[in-house]
Design a protein around this nucleic acid. Structure first.
Lengths: 306, 306
DNA sequence: CCCGGTTACGCTTGTCGTAAAGATT
DNA sequence: AATCTTTACGACAAGCGTAACCGGG
C-alpha cells in the first residue's frame, strides 16, 4: 500500500477514468494503469471495474482508508516542516465552521490581531466541519474554529489527523426550533426523549446531526428522529426558515436561534434534557511550548483570554 | 515521507542505534543510514543526533506522527484483505481493557460462543486501552472490549485508526473510593467539584485518568486533581488497595468498587455530579452488511442481545 | 474505427549490499 | 584502539514513458 499508488487510486476513483487521473497527476495513462495493477497485485484483489471505471467493494473499502491516510501523511510532513521554519510569513488564515464563524469572540479577536499586526494578511475561510481539523493539521490554516454538540463535560469529538491543541472558547445552551403555531411552541422547555417521534430536518452541516440526537435521545431507539427533509447546505438561517415553514424540527444554539427566529416565524424552545451544550473550540497546530508569536499566537492569546 | 523510511526511523529511535535497528529490520547498517539520510534530506532537517542516537525536536515531532500513520497503513491493508478472504479460520481473539475484561457479559458471551463453535480457538487478551482499537483495526483482534468514562449521551472517545463499528454494551455509575476512616467516607454522595483540592491517585491505565476528571470537574481549573501517587499498572484491585491505604482518591465503576472495597478497608461513595458513566463498548471491524458469521459474529450477536 | 485501458520494452532512477573511510569516545 | 556511522560503488530492481496492442461502443 504505497502512498503513491494510493494517491493515483483515489484520483482514478474520483475522476472515473484512468486517463483523466493521469492528466490530473501529471502521469501518462500507462503509469496510472501500472499503479492500479500494482495495487491490485499487492492486495490480491480487483479494486476497480473498468469500463465503466468504478470501485469494487474492496476498492470502496480501500477508498475509506485512503483519504485519512493521505491526510495524515501530508499533516506529518507539514507539521515537521512547520517546526523547522518556525517564524512564518505575516499572514493568518483562520478556518471556521458556519456557526463558529458567527462567534462574536472571533470578530473581536480578529480586530485585535489586525491592530497588533497591521501588516498581516488576515483571512477567514468558512469550511465544513470535517475540513477544519484537516486544514489546521496540514498547515493550510493557521487556526480553526469548530463547534459541536456534546455533554458539558466531554471534549468535542474531532477526527484525529495528528497532534493539534484545542481550547474551549464558549458554550451555549441548545434550543429546539419549531413553527410558531406548532403545539410544542408554547412549552417552556422540551426534553429530547419526547421528540423522538417527531419529523426532523436532516442538516449535518448546518445543525446538530440527527445521529447525534439519536445517540443522546435515549428513547426511540434506532428508529427515532426520522428525517423529513434533508438540507445539505451550511447556512443555519436557511435551516431555521425551513423549520419555521414546518418542514421539520431542528436543534440550534439558543442564542443564535433566538436572535433570528421571530422574524422568520419560528418559535424557540430551550432543550432541557439531556444536558447538552453547543461548544466552540479553537484549534491550533500543536506547537512547541512558548510558541505564542506572530498573528496566530496573538489570535490564540486574545481568544483564550476572552 | 515514505512509510518505509518512517518505519526504519521509528526503529532507530526505539533502539537508539542504527545497527540495532538494522538487525531488527533485516537490513544492513548501511541501508538504515541511507534511509535516515533520505528522510532528513526530504524534510530538510536533522531528525536524529548521532552518538548518542536520539531524536532531535523535529525528529520527536515526526515520531508522534509515525506511529498512528504506520498503524493506519497496516489497518488499511488488513481491512481490505479481510474483505477479500471473508470466511476466516475458526478462531476468535478478543482484546479487552482490564475493567472491561471483568464484564460478566463477556464471560457469558464467550461460553455461548464456545458452545456454538466448539472447534473454535477462543482467546481473550488483556491489553492497555490504546491497543484494543489498534488490534481490531489491524486484524490482530477479531473483537475488542473497551471501557471509558463519558457523559451518558456521548460516545467513547476512541483513537480513530479506521472504520470500526462500536456498540454500547452497558453503563455503570461511578464511585469515589476513599479510606474507610476518611471524613468523606460517610457522605451519601459526592460531587466532583468538591474534590478538586484532594490528592488523587494517578492511574491512567487502571482507573479514570486525572485529566478526564479535571475536564469534567469544572471547579479547580487546571490545578485541580493533583496527583499524589502514580500507579502505572492495570489492576483496579491494586488501585483500590492503594486508595484504602490513604495514598489518594480514585474513581472507579461503582459495582466493581462496591464488590471489593470493604475487605480492603475502603469506602465507596457514589459520584453524583457531574453525571458521568462508565461505559463498556464492543469494537468490531467494520464489515459489510450481514457479515454476522463465524465466531466473531456470534460473539457480537450474543453480546449485543444482552 | 475511435476511445480508453493494457501490455511490451527500453531507459532512467532508486535502493540495497559490500567494503572502505571517517568520526567519536 | 574499538565501535559505530557515513560514503563510495557496483549490481539489481522498480518506475516511468513511448509505442504497440486489444476490446468495446
Amino acid at each position: 500500500v504505497d502512498p503513491h499508488l494510493l494517491r493515483t487510486f483515489v484520483a482514478v476513483a474520483r475522476h472515473g477514468s484512468f486517463s483523466a487521473a493521469a492528466r490530473a497527476l501529471g502521469y501518462t495513462q500507462s503509469a496510472v494503469s501500472q499503479h492500479i495493477a500494482a495495487l491490485e497485485a499487492d492486495l490480491r484483489a480487483p479494486l476497480l471495474t473498468r469500463r465503466p471505471v468504478a470501485p469494487t467493494p474492496a476498492g470502496a473499502r480501500l477508498l475509506e482508508h485512503a483519504g485519512p491516510l493521505l491526510l495524515r501523511l501530508e499533516a506529518a510532513r507539514a507539521d515537521v516542516t512547520r517546526l523547522i521554519n518556525a517564524p512564518r510569513a505575516a499572514r493568518l488564515t483562520v478556518g471556521a465552521t458556519p456557526l463558529a464563524a458567527r462567534s462574536a469572540a472571533l470578530a473581536r479577536a480578529l480586530a485585535e490581531v489586525r491592530r497588533a499586526h497591521p501588516a498581516a494578511r488576515v483571512a477567514v475561510r468558512m469550511l465544513p466541519r470535517g475540513e477544519v481539523p484537516a486544514g489546521v493539521a496540514t498547515g493550510r490554516l493557521d487556526a480553526g474554529l469548530v463547534d459541536g454538540t456534546v455533554a458539558p463535560t466531554d471534549p468535542l469529538p474531532l477526527p484525529d489527523v495528528g497532534p493539534v491543541a484545542t481550547r474551549p472558547l464558549g458554550e451555549q445552551p441548545l434550543a429546539v426550533v419549531v413553527p410558531r403555531d406548532h403545539p410544542l411552541a408554547r412549552r417552556p422547555g422540551l426534553r429530547l426523549a419526547d421528540l423522538a417521534d417527531a419529523r426532523w430536518l436532516d442538516a449535518p452541516e448546518a445543525a446538530v446531526p440527527l445521529g447525534r440526537l439519536r445517540a443522546a435521545g435515549g428513547a426511540g431507539g434506532p428508529d427515532g428522529f426520522r428525517p423529513a427533509l434533508r438540507y445539505e447546505g451550511t447556512d443555519p438561517e436557511v435551516l431555521l426558515a425551513l423549520a419555521a415553514a414546518g418542514h421539520g424540527l431542528t436543534v440550534l444554539p439558543l442564542p443564535f436561534a433566538a436572535g433570528v427566529a421571530t422574524p422568520l416565524g419560528a418559535a424557540v424552545v430551550p432543550l432541557t434534557a439531556p444536558q447538552l451544550v453547543h461548544r466552540t473550540e479553537l484549534l491550533l497546530p500543536a506547537a512547541g511550548p512558548g510558541d505564542e508569536t506572530g498573528p496566530a499566537g496573538a489570535l490564540a492569546a486574545v481568544l483564550t483570554a476572552a
